[in-house]
């Protein structure tokens, strides 16, 4: 090791982060040493506070500092609508649209038969439990539009439909600003299927 021991340890810890290779870890370590004391302390405190105070909401599974989270406890949200998502990051993406006013349910992943991830590894039982009291009238399955997301949505629809609850899936299609000629045939076929009258 060519670095002083504490520096080497810092680089080793940074390398454990996703997407961080040895060079990036070194650059970040040098940056952390160069920043003012106050900024370094804020970084340490931000990591410690996030670790201590952020947990999962016991109702929706989203990240929260309180239980239930502010979305689940908000009186302004439509309680007849639940949007099912794979990941807390997807909640942020949905909230940014300012279009959706219902509640959320975060599964914590998607079914992946080949990776051995089944419904038991996800918050599926909790979702079905939330649907028992008759308040929810529609479940929007907003899992990712890939093979894992599709199989998760299809599986959930099988469980939810017999409860007499409307089950919908997010539309598939062309991205805003995309050129038609560059779209692949699967996306284009889905977009064609989902066309609507103007």
């Amino acid at each position: 090791m060519y670095y002083p021991e504490p520096m080497g340890r810092l680089i080793a810890q940074l390398r454990k982060l996703p997407g961080i290779g040895p060079r990036t870890a070194q650059r970040l370590a040098f940056h952390i040493l160069d920043i003012p004391d106050q900024e370094a302390k804020q970084l340490i405190e931000a990591i410690a506070t996030a670790r201590d105070e952020v947990s999962h909401c016991s109702i929706c599974g989203n990240l929260a500092t309180e239980d239930p989270c502010n979305l689940c406890s908000s009186p302004g949200r439509d309680r007849s609508l639940i949007c099912v998502l794979q990941d807390p990051r997807a909640v942020v993406a949905m909230e940014r649209t300012h279009e959706y006013k219902g509640l959320y349910h975060v599964l914590g992943g998607a079914i992946s038969p080949m990776e051995g991830i089944g419904p038991d590894e996800l918050r599926v039982k909790e979702l079905i439990q939330r649907l028992q009291d008759g308040t929810v009238k529609e479940v929007v399955l907003a899992t990712d539009l890939n093979a894992e997301g599709e199989v998760t949505a299809t599986y959930l629809a099988r469980l939810i439909k017999p409860l007499g609850i409307k089950t919908t899936r997010l539309a598939h299609g062309l991205p805003v600003g995309g050129d038609l000629e560059y779209a692949d045939q699967v996306t284009l076929a889905k977009a064609f299927e989902g066309r609507r009258e103007l």
Binding site: P113, M114, A147, E150, V151, T154, V186
Partner: peptide, 18 residues
């Protein structure tokens, strides 16, 4: 798509590919 949009066929298909 007919495989990917059907739960039973997806489960069989995933098993076959694995």
């Amino acid at each position: 798509r007919a495989i990917r949009e059907d739960l039973i066929k997806t489960a069989i298909g995933a098993y076959i590919l694995e």
